[in-house]
Nucleic acid binder design. Structure first.
Lengths: 347, 347
DNA sequence: CTGAAAGCGCTTACAG
DNA sequence: CTGAAAGCGCTTACAG
């Protein structure tokens, strides 16, 4: 027992009749240990229930076994304090914690301000105090050049959640936005729809660009006329636009909205105008936050694979911490979740 | 600079012209440093942007600056994987992370199985690997005697989120359930209600006991006849019971439900029976999860002060890590959030 | 294939 | 009030 009461590498070494370096080799799966000795050591580890002290490991010069995600401080706190829940954080933890614990790592996250100088200062702090083996930059930090530079200069592995960014040399982890839009269109054309509109988010959001592209491609392939307008991801704008669209003689029989909030607005307007969903109007959303199940009817949606993206990010970083080859951008599969807002096109 | 590139205590010592022990004293707010020297050191720390390496601090024999919350593994993962969000985890993080970071600590949490042997094994692991300064046991782990024994034996400070438990000698952090029920009743009597029912959860849930007690006391005070039945926190049971109650000639004009799910069921049944809420029926819930805002109409509810309870727990543990006196049980204030399901009693 | 030595960056007694 | 010494539990070269 160590002087502080827990079992140490020295205890294992004694029990197995070897030196602590040899135990260390076994713990770290390094080659050059005779099978018989390795077995003896593994037995001793199991018998004693030995678990290495991470602080000591870190001090010895190894990794910290910590993966740090960086999140938008203000937005996260706002969501929490409004009691609104926080789907992003939940799914991030779901994907990240489980991926990390499988390999003996721990995931934690830090709330960081978006202002670049402040962000750099805060990340520097965790760098010094916790010395994580890798960083996951989530939106909007994944586009923060100052942060990317800091991490690059300090040679700390990091990945970005988001579309590739020319100015940052780090793996980008994202879903195929264009393919998702295509899938949404195809789901609707399969149901016989011909007048399918895309309610876009904002031009500043880079995903929108690819979604429009995918939408256009799928519409073209089906020989249909595209109808796109932006509503900036806001309820009010979306309601306004939905009212316009649904008042037309040749009104769309289906609308794809780029986020849940706009989809809710569409449902709201349709209800007010006496247009039944999905009988007279189909709606698909991009996002799939928990509130979606409470809408009437529950929304069919493209689900953002947040958990899978974060899990993939952790994998890359753990690989890097273990000296693995650097990997490139990652495209994570999305899913179309059919609920009750899509149905056959009206006659 | 340390050999690994970051600024160390040695750098600060050199810059301030003192030994590293003196710097350590200043960092840890220990007495016995001449004010002038202290100032010089503080300046050097600021100039160099020095942040101590936590792993080294831990190795030196100090605290780890880590507070570990223990959560129900299965339930948490189920919620996440169903995409349902996880209000408990969100609010726990909200309260805990911010409380910890204010004092230079970090909060993390671990998903632990409820089976006692397995739980002990898992907590032993984090104890050895991360050596947290304190543990927060959340439900149902807060009632796990094996875990309490382990932590007690190892002299690790811990607090429990939940009602006091005779068998466990650790601070219990909870809200005043009886007072909350009284508040709910009083809110309704103030609105003129006289037939107020309590839809209880399950007798196994200890909070239910106090809520019933508070409800009875408040009803007695108002000279009203209590009406209590249990629906086990389930939607179906609650719907059944609501149907029964609302079919009576002297049906209640107000129902207090012990969780959101049962309150939703009541709204559902009322709607189906053509009973308008809040015009003909008022409903109050205990819980206030994010879904509450999506109900029609939005639920008036007693909000569980999860964030505040966890923050309080972290405070106690940080105090203990710093040698503070052990504090006793903590009652955290709740809040009644008025939304749209309560109104004046019908004529 | 295995072990003796040195060191990581701190803190904790102990001297003075 | 301040510093020299020892040590925490590991890993990393380096010997053999």
């Amino acid at each position: 027992m160590g002087k502080r009461g827990s079992i140490t590498i020295e205890d294992v070494a004694k029990a197995a009749g070897v030196s602590r370096q040899t135990v260390s080799r076994v713990m770290n799966n390094k080659p050059g240990v005779k099978p018989a000795v390795r077995e003896r050591i593994e037995e001793a580890i199991a018998d004693l229930g030995y678990v290495p002290n991470l602080a000591a490991r870190r001090m010895g010069g190894a990794r910290s076994f910590l993966i740090m995600a960086i999140n938008d401080r203000q937005r996260t706190i706002e969501n929490w304090s409004a009691g609104r829940g926080n789907d992003w954080v939940d799914q991030m933890l779901y994907g990240g914690m489980l991926a990390c614990e499988k390999r003996g790592y721990h995931m934690l996250f830090e709330l960081v301000d978006t202002e670049p100088d402040e962000a750099v200062r805060q990340v520097r702090r965790v760098l010094s105090s916790l010395q994580p083996d890798g960083f996951i930059l989530t939106q909007p930090h994944s586009e923060n050049l100052a942060l990317a530079d800091l991490l690059t200069d300090l040679k700390r592995p990091f990945v970005r959640i988001g579309l590739p960014n020319e100015d940052i040399d780090a793996a980008a982890i994202h879903m195929d936005e264009a393919a998702a839009a295509e899938t949404a269109v195809r789901h609707l054309t399969d149901l016989g729809h011909e007048r399918i509109a895309l309610m876009a988010g904002s031009a500043e959001y880079r995903g929108s660009y690819y979604r429009k592209k995918g939408y256009r491609a799928a519409m073209e392939e089906a020989e249909l006329t595209p109808l796109i307008e932006a509503a900036e991801f806001h309820f009010e704008n979306a309601a306004q636009l939905a009212k316009e669209w649904l008042s037309r003689d040749d009104r769309p029989t289906a609308i794809i909205a780029e986020n849940d909030e706009m989809a809710f607005a569409i449902l709201h307007v349709a209800d007010a105008m006496g247009i039944e969903v999905p009988k007279s109007l189909s709606v698909i959303s991009f996002e799939d936050t928990p509130g979606v199940r409470f809408s009437v009817p529950p929304l069919t949606a493209i689900r953002q694979p947040t958990a899978a993206m974060i899990a993939r990010g952790c994998e890359l970083l753990m690989d890097a911490a273990e000296g693995g080859a650097p990997e490139g951008d990652q495209v994570v599969p999305f899913e179309l979740i059919e609920r009750e807002t899509t149905g056959p096109a009206p006659e």
